[in-house]
Write a protein that binds this DNA or RNA. Sequence first.
DNA 1: GCAAAAGTGTTACTACTACACCCATGG
DNA 2: CCATGGGTGTAGTAGTAACACTTTTGC
Lengths: 239, 239
Amino acid sequence: MDGYDKYAFEPFAVTVDLAVFTIRGGALHVLLVERGQEPYAGRWALPGGFVRPDESAESAARRELGEETGLTDVSGLHLEQLRTYSEPGRDPRMRVVSVAFAALLPHAPEAHGGSDAAQARWTPYDCARELAFDHDRILADARDRVGAKLEYTCLATAFCPSEFTLGELRQVYETVWGTALDRPNFRRKVLATPGFVEAVPGAARLTGGRGKPAALYRAGTAAILHPPLLRPTPEGRPA
Amino acid sequence: MDGYDKYAFEPFAVTVDLAVFTIRGGALHVLLVERGQEPYAGRWALPGGFVRPDESAESAARRELGEETGLTDVSGLHLEQLRTYSEPGRDPRMRVVSVAFAALLPHAPEAHGGSDAAQARWTPYDCARELAFDHDRILADARDRVGAKLEYTCLATAFCPSEFTLGELRQVYETVWGTALDRPNFRRKVLATPGFVEAVPGAARLTGGRGKPAALYRAGTAAILHPPLLRPTPEGRPA
DNA sequence: GCAAAAGTGTTACTACTACACCCATGG
DNA sequence: CCATGGGTGTAGTAGTAACACTTTTGC
């Protein structure tokens, strides 16, 4: 098993697949591209592409993210490796091993084709069904991971613009988790966690057109949330 | 980026690397193999090998686990995908992308060469330094992941034999985390979590030669631990 | 008896839950 | 004025931390 022979095994292709999430109109959206060729021609799929010989999977994912979203600067965006999908039959043509990533975007630029001709579109998560390859599963895994990470990390700010209200931050949780949170308790929890958010002095903004203007905050420097912000136990869990 | 051409890119080799943990004498140990050839000849490395054309990375990892440990049945052992390492220069000879896994073994069978000739040895985690390739980093990542998963899953029972005492289970936490836990509180926490452990009626065992015989338990059916069993905040964390 | 490990009890405190309530703004 | 969303207060409770204490074994 230790003999490295470049030709001892059938070559593998290595790709990256991206689950790019954003929140639009109170619903979780994911970026999909329409496939132009077989297999799965005409079907929607997660954006992605080959890892080039001179780059890591992380570099490839960030490059693809820029190409697909059309954003000029993707260096600050949160990009997280999920896991690698390697079942032998997952691509009918050849052996393709895919490293999956999740990305979180604050504001949704209208999707466009990017550098290649493929059509790209923001799709509500619940409508993203019957994707090409095993992308249904990758997408579901990505959402699970993002939801879990909201509990014990400060990841939620990655969905928000540089300045945001606590109501917008709470909407991130409610949208990803699909549950309502108690507003006063959420506020206290966030403010009691040092480094989660920092206030923008004096700034305020109206959110829904009505109501009291809300104070603005920026993302803090902390990365983990301790103690965690546990989602309400839906029912299936013990305790 | 969507043109699948098997020869458009330099071929990648795909391997698995395994961080196999066990607990021996109150210390966390990891299984290492000695490399017989360049590069890194004579250095210690994590066990692993190529993914074959007809198997997934998970299958390859379980196959390698059986070969390296000499265990006849590895089907029930906990095996968890960590992440994939794909930096271009991580193997000096060719482009190797490696999917890393962590495995947890209850009792430590004396290591032996396994099916191939390489020497294998259980090494205390703290002595596993200067490994081949980027295995230092993989090993550190594996330990971090296992430590984190002890907090919110029932994974700790994977380190224990089929019947174990609560003292042994507590030692798992203390060994992996490197901190002491309050014995009475740990006991209550574990027993208060439905499905974590189930009592073996009437059974008892002496643990340290002295002391009161401890009741025996088996691993339960629950997988997640809710609420989590948080490790004592070392200092670096907020709150 | 003494040391060691298992097991039980108790108190104080943290953190969260579920509300009621007030404030500021647009219509 | 009312509806809407932001912000504050507070009592009850679940869960944890930090002990003291008893029990059962080997030496």
